[in-house]
Write a protein that binds this DNA or RNA. Structure first.
Lengths: 155, 155
DNA sequence: TGACTCATGTCAGTATTCTGACATATCGTT
DNA sequence: AACGATATGTCAGAATACTGACATGAGTCA
């Protein structure tokens, strides 16, 4: 009908497709993690801590793409459940490093396996070259979005 | 250090990168839409209605990747603000079609322009071929994730 | 040293989305 | 026609993430 010449054709928009893919991935991860009683953000936190022990609340928040306030309450829950510890004697200035407990390590191992099966399924049917191309593509998008945030030419 | 042989290397995970790209896109869209007083989901709803007038609540929910309950409260807000209408006389069975008002159309035009500038920025530096490849890649991921949801071999 | 800026941790309140539940309407099968 | 399975709209409550705010510590510079 009305040609939406000034609009965004959702059928061909890479942004819309990116949102769709992200939504599908999140759903699949939620389903995989539900038996373990973990949310996606909680898993992200455990995975980050497994690979980089001692990360602070703010660093974890950036790594999981949530605010530091959200990560703070999430960490309180993980600490209450005995999956992480934040010993007060490790504090450096205001920064309070976080580490996985043995229980947290075990939980992360199980969660990691579940999530990996999702990722394997997602990448099924893609060649190694296609995966590399996808990696480069997503990195380019991220860089372009961050680079010039509001982005006028530098004066 | 500890080889995380069974884990997911966040530095090379396409899933993690997908989440990062989606987060960056969402942030950029939020920033672009904030002056208009619209959230990303509200914009998605207006855009869907502009391209396919008469969409129902459930159809809009699927198109915006939220639950129909969330879309329901969102539509109530848009209706209260005079951007959409859901005339009771259009009801077909239980389905209640939604349409943009003139004010909704104007709002969508402004929002669409703002979002398009974000998408243009995101795709800056990518060739037409790369965009097509990215499109195919994301569609492949989505299909693989949806196809075999819990995915054993069909009996 | 003092002033300024910035990053961090945390508390509180708000907003958004989700899950659970119910009534109702449609479709397919018997 | 009757039944069951599925889809829809909607209300209510819970979970999750956000914005605002404040105090504290680190870093820079005069």
């Amino acid at each position: 009908m009305s040609q939406d010449g000034d609009g965004i054709d959702l059928g061909t928009s890479l942004g819309y497709l990116l949102k769709e893919a992200s939504s599908a991935l999140r759903s699949a991860m939620e389903a995989a993690l539900r038996p373990l009683g973990l949310t996606v953000t909680q898993y992200s936190c455990l995975e980050l801590l497994a690979q980089r022990p001692g990360l602070s609340n703010s660093e974890l928040a950036r790594g999981a793409f949530v605010t530091r306030q959200s990560m703070n309450v999430l960490l309180q829950g993980l600490e209450r459940d005995g999956l992480v510890i934040r010993p007060e004697e490790d504090r450096v200035g205001k920064v309070l490093p976080t580490r996985l407990t043995p229980a947290g390590l075990r939980m992360r191992a199980k969660a990691s396996a579940a999530v990996r099966s999702v990722e394997v399924r997602m990448l099924g049917g893609l060649s190694e070259g296609e995966r590399r191309a996808g990696f480069a593509l997503l990195e380019s998008m991220i860089h372009s979005l961050r680079d010039d945030a509001t982005a006028q030419a530098p004066s």
